[in-house]
């Protein structure tokens, strides 16, 4: 009986959570005139015109490709640099460790508006404007610290005896780290990968500042549509639905790592 109550509470929450997304999905299958014309719980004249437009117009679908490219690069850089650093913070004392650890997070704390101009100047000095790598690198500013923080939290939950035993057994550091340690913090790596992906995916201001056409992100393409004399709600909703898809796939792939987690005793 107790289990049932919990499930019902969770289902109610998920139902409410899905409502705005359902509304977006609903709108994506209707034409603009239809949406503005009357209230409809579900689309009566289903049209795929909004989706067709996105899949056939290069200005639209290239936005998705650009975003996916720089987000993937960013997630890979963030994870591969943050893993060893987080291990250092969770296991060792070294000169300035506390200060550096907190300093990392301060990079998420500045309001973006005024920083955009110097950001643009910095990246144009290096000739990186309008490249995917520029956006991926710039997003490291907030994703790498986040990854270090999340991973450090999970690593500190693993008893140090595990490291000691492994070293006594003759494991080298890289082999221990990949074979023994990483599997223990799978849920942490999964959630970190998803968060890096997510924050880079939805970031708009920096990505828009550093790109013009070749690496223009999807979120920027969507604002352009918004400002073009009266909104095309149907098109925007379809684009919104499609922005969810890549991230949903990412979480689908890391779900097993997140749901299994830590299994002490099987080491």
């Amino acid at each position: 009986m107790k289990i049932r109550k919990r499930t019902i509470a969770l289902l109610i929450y998920f139902f409410l959570l899905m409502l705005p997304i359902y509304w977006m999905l609903n709108m994506s299958f209707r034409s603009n005139a239809d949406i503005l014309g009357y209230f409809a719980l579900y689309p009566k004249d289903i049209t795929f015109a909004n989706y067709m437009r996105i899949f056939t117009d290069k200005a639209w679908y290239s936005g998705y490709l650009n975003s996916m490219i720089y987000v993937t690069i960013n997630t890979l850089i963030s994870l591969s640099l943050a893993l060893p650093a987080a291990y250092a913070f969770s296991r060792y004392h070294f000169v300035g460790d506390g200060q550096i650890f907190f300093w990392l997070l301060t990079n998420r704390m500045a309001p973006a508006a005024v920083f955009l101009l110097p950001f643009f100047q910095l990246y144009s000095t290096f000739g990186l404007i309008d490249t995917h790598i520029a956006v991926a690198l710039a997003h490291c500013l907030f994703n790498v610290p986040l990854a270090v923080w999340i991973l450090e939290g999970f690593m500190s939950g693993v008893p140090k005896e595990i490291d000691e035993t492994a070293y006594l057994d003759g494991y080298s550091f890289p082999r221990f780290f990949i074979r023994v340690f990483l599997p223990l913090i799978r849920s942490g790596v999964g959630v970190t990968a998803f968060f890096c992906f997510m924050f880079s995916w939805v970031e708009l201001l920096i990505a828009r500042t550093l790109t013009t056409t070749n690496a223009k992100p999807i979120a920027a393409t969507m604002t352009r549509t918004v400002s073009a004399g009266g909104l095309d709600w149907g098109l925007l909703a379809a684009a919104g639905v499609l922005t969810i898809v890549p991230g949903a796939l990412v979480i689908w792939f890391v779900r097993n790592h997140m749901a299994k987690g830590f299994a002490l005793g099987r080491v």
Partner: peptide
């Protein structure tokens, strides 16, 4: 994860 993945302006 779904609500988190929508760009903020959208």
């Amino acid at each position: 994860a779904l609500p988190l993945l929508i760009p903020w302006n959208v």
